[in-house]
Design a protein around this nucleic acid. Structure first.
Lengths: 98, 98
DNA sequence: GTAACGTACAACCAAATGGTTGCACAACGA
DNA sequence: TCGTTGTGCAACCATTTGGTTGTACGTTAC
């Protein structure tokens, strides 16, 4: 998941598809690279479940999956909570030895 | 930053150094790879400011930088906020046309 | 003083990544 | 029907990544 978020282009695709559903071609037209390159980025995001695709005729409409973004955020929040826990233990220690 | 978070080993180093300050050797002993490999992971995390190092004699003590973890989390929260904004706009639209 | 320890860094290697072009194929439009 | 459009996938290529070993150098212990 973090691997999928690592490339700037993919984060940008995520940003655009949060705004509104877009076809793969729509997305490809926004970047200075081949359609195939963008299609691969979309595939990576899809594999990480950061986006979902929906078929509409010959188009594939892409939209961000906020649930998965929330999950990434929760993981980082968990790291912070661990740190907070350390502080809390330190606080407890200081309370014991004032 | 997300690139730095992309490797599982580095996230694990982050987790360990949130818990408590540890030397590079301490960290290296935890993984089934060479010292140099771990040292490189630490260097990547340091370049992303996800950890900070402190010299103590010949040792380099590593600790996580919760400020930067918070920043990563905030970025993801921002993405979610964009999505929320979309929903809010939709809500406003529905309110206009009940 | 010297041996051992902790760290950094260079050189190298295999595998993954991010890009390309080309091709196949389904869906749409004239 | 037939050309065009939208998509996916394979093959290929250069660069990056994640690992290795070896070397150098400052710090600590004896």
């Amino acid at each position: 998941m973090f691997q999928a978020l690592a490339a700037a282009t993919r984060r940008d695709i995520l940003r655009r598809t949060i705004d509104r559903e877009q076809s793969v071609s729509d997305l490809a037209s926004e970047y200075d690279m081949s359609f195939a390159a963008v299609q691969k980025h979309v595939a990576v995001l899809e594999a990480a479940h950061l986006i979902v695709k929906r078929a509409e005729g010959r188009e594939r409409l892409v939209r961000a999956n906020p649930e998965m973004i929330a999950r990434a955020r929760a993981l980082l929040a968990h790291y912070e909570a661990l740190w907070r826990g350390r502080v809390d233990r330190l606080d407890a220690l200081l309370a014991e030895n004032p």
